[in-house]
Write a protein that binds this DNA or RNA. Structure first.
Length: 131
RNA sequence: GUGGAAGGCUGGAUGGCCGCGGCAGACUGGAUCUGUCGAGGAAAGUCCGGACUCCAAAAAGCAACGGUGCCGGGUAACGCCCGGGCGGGGCAACCCGACGGAAAGCGCCACAGAAAAUAUACCGCCCCGCAGGUUGGGGUCCGGUCGAACCGGUGGGGUAAAAGCCCACCGCGCCUCUGGCAACAGCGGCGGCAUGGCAAGCCCCACCGGGAGCAAUGCCAAAUAGGGAUCCCGCCAUUGGGCGCGCUUUUCGCUCAGGGAUCCGGGUUGGCAGCUAAAGCGCGGGUGGCAACACCCCGCCCAGAGGAAUGGUCAUCACCCUUCGGGGAACAGAAUCCGGCUUACAGGCCUUCCGCGCAU
RNA sequence: CGGGCUAUGGCGCAGCUUGGUAGCGCGUCCGUCUGGGGGACGGAAGGUCGUAGGUUCGAAUCCUGCUAGCCCGA
């Protein structure tokens, strides 16, 4: 299982957007993950953020991935769920249009780090990328 | 009061906001709304036993291999559970035991020691001989030494010195009888020391086991070229061969003339079933049983995904720690199902029993 | 779902079958040879044998349970 594992758990994109100002779309294909992997990245204690500016389209797309280092399937799923909650909360307002984001879980921290601190981490990482 | 032993239970609660999976219903057949259900005692490790399905064969048995191993019972079955026996540990409650066979056979027992399994004779001990010694022959296994272990133990008799050589008791073995379904226990008698240890070395004996696993298996749909090879049967021909061709397709025309099995190549990785009401659960009741458990009645309905949903976050209460800011909250996540075993586990609760101290 | 293998000095491996002494190569340290380096030679240190139990007088070795890693089949 590589970092480019397709995000099979991603739910319907429209369901994600319910009640939110901007729709989030999921990254599904391995090639899309690989493209984002070559893009600039910011590492935080709770996760790693990658962002790739696309040429076409204005929607924000986001993908989640966890390697086996994070733990067994339960630990990986919990890490991805927390990352998904983060993205739902912050990306529609702080994200940049026409960008693909990939959030990568880190062993030991993604499932345990304080959620407020992770929100700050994500906002700071987004500012850093845009500057 | 304190220290233990055994058995059982529990594994935070409530409410916002956002979100996930199954099922049912509603609605302009849209990817919406409503309702409802949604992890464990170990779901874990995958160590045993089954159910179920297919394969091979036959209702069996044998060989090989593997497993189990005191006795009796329970169970669908078990390597599990209950009861009993024997051995060991603990003052006790109680706990632990791979607990058949070493007088069927093979093998191993390092070092040390005289000697390690058909026993042996180093230092001693005793007797006899002579050339009287740093000596020769014999007796003996009593004492010493070694070791994890050395060929019964203690006491007495006996002797040149000794020895189950003889005797008593203990141990061991055999036999009869008694109790018990049995393992086994007990009384009595006999034998006269034989049988060192290791079977988690090979092995022997008794009993059990055909193989594979839900990615099993069945059905539907789609897709590909109804392709190739071999064999069998059939037909025509008879040295070797052929079983099709034309046409967009069917009808049709020409021709003596197509069926089966296995394998290879190629294609498909969609849907449904299997699938969860079950050898089910109940600190509900009754009967039988010491018990495990069985039977009857009553009540309950408790995930079914199809690479995996059961979550995230905030607040309050309860618990633990605190330097009063705050921090912590175990082991762990269903994948066909069930019965066990094993392993992991913060904290808390209940019942019964034993020892010791104090008071009465 | 089922099956198999491995774990031994810092690294790579023997030893396990048939139980009694843990060994080899590279590396490390010290010394000598050289003007010095490399190299050679001599010497030395370094191992709870993955872990917890059991069998045995005695276990790296035999048995059982865990832990970690790797591989195979459907």
């Amino acid at each position: 299982m590589s970092a480019g594992q397709p995000e099979q758990n991603l739910s319907h994109p429209a369901a994600l957007s319910a009640g939110l100002p901007l729709r989030l779309y999921g990254l599904k294909k391995r090639s899309e993950f690989l493209a984002a992997a070559r893009a600039p990245r910011i590492a935080t204690p709770g996760f790693v953020l990658q962002a790739r500016k696309r040429d076409e389209g204005a929607e924000i797309r986001v993908g989640f991935t966890c390697s086996k280092k994070v733990g067994n399937s339960i630990a990986r799923n919990r890490a991805k769920r927390r990352l998904r909650a983060l993205a739902r909360l912050i990306l529609p307002t702080d994200g940049h249009a026409g960008t693909d984001y990939v959030l990568i879980g880190r062993a030991g921290n993604t499932g345990e780090r304080d959620f407020k601190m992770m929100q700050d981490d994500l906002r700071r990482a987004l500012r850093k990328l845009s500057s």
